[in-house]
Design a protein around this nucleic acid. Structure first.
Lengths: 208, 208
DNA sequence: CGGCGTTTTCCAACACCGTTCGAAACTTGA
DNA sequence: TCAAGTTTCGAACGGTGTTGGAAAACGCCG
């Protein structure tokens, strides 16, 4: 079958979902298409462009997931709920691929139409909420970079934390009492995410 | 001269500052030490460990810069000012190296003593400010991931934006009127950063 | 149908990467 | 001085992104 930009991005997304961002290679993408690696370069300028296209697709998926989440919201939902729905949809879309946050982080996001769609809808939500227009830009920007930053640190947490000896543990407790103490609650990442979102939203509202 | 873990990290930081995160290779680090690449592996388990050590060093530099900024603060400074000082010190430290945000983002930050120092001081600042203890953990976490997320998108913005044709520009304005419109003020990244920080801090305060 | 120009694919190669391993070189203690 | 241990070398392996010329497939016109 003929090679196409779209088919290459499709294969790229498939390989991406399987092996993750770090191990994605042109040769694997080509293999999935029964083609040779060099052939990809006729349709794509390089790996960077392929990654950018894939990042755009992730944004598009997140946008679609966001519209679905928004329509499922009851009519009594506040604007905070609407922001929260969009942000969690974006987070889940990124988390579908291992290292997805790195993909979004390393490709310049400003010129992708998918990222622009996300931004546009966020701005509209904030504007409709009655927030002062001159602050909506910063608010939406902060929101987006916060979500990517959050998922980034979420995906990079080692699945199996390295073993700490009792001696080292005691040393850590002494040097970092607040961090090691019970100040940081052992809540789930989901809870932490929604709480940080509410934090942001109340900040937006308080500045009005 | 003899090879050491510290000297290797030093050389890594130097190469890092020159060529950036993407192009940092073991061979270049070895060249700077007049050694061969394989020799590094006697002192370092692999590139991952070297990157982790470098990330820790960046955090340590950011911590030191933060203490300096804090002591320079007048006695009348509010807790928001103290948070702002630490966050901007961290941001500037990361920005000293091209791709520094990626370095911090891709190395699991929880087990680095440098990162723990930053976290600990943030927690203490928030606690001393009188914020409810159970929210300080999330607040500090949000703060850290926000800073890395911000610098990440800041460093990945293409230095020379790709040329947009008039036709494409019109299309973008039609599809994304809010984004393309004057809603997003053309303020500097510095302003955007401090404003987003104030946003977060007012969110922290409002939840008390 | 034959021929031709264009588009697309192959294939081999290049330079670089992280990493490994056995053999050397060096250092240290007896 | 010898032997043991520590550190470095140097070559190699398999992998990567990327390139460019040869070869194939395609569409089109006579």
């Amino acid at each position: 079958m003929k090679l196409t930009k779209d088919r290459i991005v499709d294969a790229g997304m498939a390989v991406f979902a399987e092996v993750g961002y770090q191990n994605l290679s042109m040769r694997q993408v080509a293999d999935r298409l029964d083609a040779h690696a060099g052939s990809l370069y006729y349709h794509v300028r390089g790996k960077d462009e392929l990654l950018a296209l894939m990042a755009d697709r992730v944004c598009r998926q997140a946008y679609d997931a966001g519209t679905e989440a928004l329509t499922a919201l009851p009519a009594t939902a506040t604007w905070t709920d609407r922001i929260e729905a969009q942000a969690t949809a974006l987070r889940l879309s990124i988390k579908q691929h291992p290292g997805g946050a790195q993909l979004l982080a390393e490709s310049p996001g400003r010129l992708s139409t998918g990222a622009l769609s996300l931004m546009e809808r966020l701005l509209r939500t904030l504007l409709d909420a009655g927030l002062p227009a001159e602050r909506c830009g910063i608010a939406a920007d902060t929101l987006l970079s916060h979500v990517t930053g959050f998922v980034l640190q979420e995906q990079n947490q080692p699945s199996s934390p390295p073993p700490v000896t009792a001696e080292l543990y005691a040393d850590l407790c002494e040097r970092f009492p607040l961090v090691m103490g019970d100040l940081i609650p052992r809540i789930s990442q989901d809870d932490k995410f929604t709480r940080s979102l509410r934090l942001l939203c109340t900040g937006f509202a308080a500045l009005s």
